[in-house]
Every structure is written in structure tokens, then in C-alpha cells.
């Protein structure tokens, strides 16, 4: 016990710098990847540095960007559609008991339908248009967003609603100033989750119904047994997702939740 206690602060001081912690996590992942790569044939699972080389090759040859852009655009549109639809439905379900009972079965059904089923259906309906992956993404993702937002709105303090009523605050203002900020932690987790599944669904949909995009390229690589290329495409997209997470989502989150961080140095007295 005593030894353990003495070690704890040391670990704490290493991990106290968040970037060191992130880099350590990433490094460990790369080591694990390399370890697995020693077991499998090289074209099935290349080493990290080979994958990065291949990915860089894709960037240099100019193939990477148009396909990444196509996938990102579809992901973004699908994500946007699902958060708009999911947030609206979630808020509605959270503030109105009747609509909650009315929509719950649909949300549950929506959660259980596999993305690939929507991808197949939308491909039949929309063919190779951008609508196929976008609509498939919206239909698969919005129930996740709705259920999170619903729970977030439900967690709102009734006292704050009563206070607002006492001061004659309109419903619109309550929605903007009270309900949405109160549900913000749930909104963020659902948006993050929504973005992550959106891109996976777009990729699946692109396998079916696209002539560009990361999914399409993955499929091409798979068909000609160039698995190492599939890894390269996947790693490119991982980099893009990491940039979005740390460059966009986290800074916004930090700003929105400023009032909570301040609680750490709350005044007493």
C-alpha cells in the first residue's frame, strides 16, 4: 500500500500535462499496432510507418484530397441533418409527455435498424447521387442524437422552468437560454458520437453508391487485394477526425462549459 501511495504522485505528474498523456496514449497504440503487424503478412497489415508513407503518397499524388473532401462533405451534411432532426425531436420529447410516448417506439426502431439496410435502401432510391449516403447517415444517426437530447432536456431542473414562468419568459427564450444550455453536455456527447457514426455510415454508403470518397477507395483497394492501401485511407481519415476533435469540437466545448471550469476555484464565504 505504502509503495503504491508513493508512486501515485509520480504518475500524476507525468499525466498532468494533457498533451503528454495524449501522446503517450498514441505512442502505445503505435507500439501495439507494430506488434500486431509482425504477426500478419505485410500486405494484410503493414507497419505504422509504411502506412504513413503510403498515405503520404496518396496526398502527394493528389488522390487523397478530392476523395477526403467528398467523404467529409457527405459526413458533414449527414451529421448536420441528424443533429437538426435529432435535437428537434429530442427537445420535443423532453418537454412534451405526449410526444415522448408517441415517438419513443420510432426512436427505438431507428436505433435497431442497421446502417447497411438504410444504405441499401437509399442507394436504390437515390442511385449515385450525394443524397444516398447523406440520407442513410441522417436516418441512422438521428435516433442516437434524439435519445441523448431527450435525456438531457429531461434532466432540466423544474425550478428553473417555474422561475422563468414567474418572470413571464417566453417559450422561445426558455428554449434558447434554459433548455438547450441545460442539455448542452448531452448535446456535445451526442454530437461527438453522431459525427463518429456519421463518417462510418458514409463510408459504408460510399461502398454501395459512390464513385468517389474514402469508402469507395477502400472498396477499390479491397477488390484488388491492396489491403495496405485500405489502411492508408483509414489512417488519413483518422487524422482528419482527430483534427476536427481537437481543433473544433474541444475548443467549442471548452468555451461553452467555461462556467463549469470556473467551479474549480469557487469562492467560499
Amino acid at each position: 500500500m505504502a509503495t503504491k501511495n508513493r508512486r501515485l504522485p509520480a504518475i500524476g505528474s507525468i499525466t498532468s500535462n494533457k498533451w503528454i498523456a495524449r501522446m503517450l496514449g498514441l505512442l502505445l497504440g503505435l507500439i501495439a499496432w507494430s506488434a500486431v503487424a509482425t504477426v500478419f503478412p505485410n500486405n494484410l497489415m503493414p507497419y505504422p510507418y509504411e502506412t504513413i508513407q503510403l498515405a503520404w503518397g496518396l496526398v502527394e499524388s493528389g488522390v487523397a484530397w478530392p476523395n477526403l473532401r467528398a467523404t467529409l462533405l457527405r459526413t458533414f451534411l449527414g451529421f448536420l441533418g441528424s443533429i437538426l432532426l435529432g435535437t428537434a425531436l429530442g427537445v420535443f420529447m423532453g418537454i412534451n409527455n405526449y410526444s415522448q410516448r408517441f415517438f419513443t417506439p420510432y426512436v427505438v426502431i431507428g436505433l435497431s435498424i442497421p446502417a447497411i439496410a438504410w444504405a441499401a435502401v437509399t442507394t436504390i432510391i437515390y442511385g449515385f447521387s450525394i443524397m444516398a449516403p447523406v440520407v442513410a447517415t441522417v436516418l441512422t444517426t438521428f435516433p442516437y442524437v434524439a435519445i441523448n437530447v431527450w435525456k438531457g432536456v429531461e434532466s432540466l431542473e423544474p425550478d428553473l422552468i417555474n422561475m422563468s414562468r414567474s418572470f413571464n419568459i417566453s417559450r422561445g427564450r426558455m428554449l434558447r437560454r434554459l433548455i438547450l444550455p441545460s442539455a448542452a453536455p448531452f448535446l456535445f456527447s451526442s454530437f461527438r458520437f453522431g459525427l463518429a457514426i456519421s463518417w462510418k455510415i458514409v463510408t459504408i454508403a460510399e461502398i454501395f453508391a459512390a464513385s468517389s470518397g474514402v469508402g469507395y477507395k477502400l472498396m477499390q483497394a479491397y477488390q484488388v487485394y491492396q489491403f495496405e492501401k485500405a489502411w492508408a485511407w483509414a489512417s488519413l481519415f483518422i487524422i482528419v477526425i482527430l483534427v476536427i476533435e481537437y481543433g473544433i469540437i474541444k475548443p467549442i466545448e471548452k468555451r461553452v462549459f467555461e462556467y463549469r471550469h470556473d467551479a474549480d476555484f469557487a469562492l467560499i464565504g
Binding site: D159, M163, S164, P181, S182
Partner: peptide, 27 residues
């Protein structure tokens, strides 16, 4: 106009003191 003071102050945690006052001045 009625001014309400509650047992629990019922402040919006995501708004500053000024923001909490501004909130009730919609009209």
C-alpha cells in the same frame, strides 16, 4: 410587476450575475 425571490435562488448556472438579471428582462 411582481418580483420573485425563491427559497433556492434559481439562477442559470451558465450565465453570469449580469446574464441572470438580463434573462428576466425579455419584455
Amino acid at each position: 410587476t411582481l418580483g420573485h425571490v425563491f427559497q433556492d435562488p434559481r439562477l442559470l448556472p451558465w450565465n453570469t450575475c449580469v446574464g441572470n438579471i438580463e434573462y428576466v428582462h425579455e419584455n
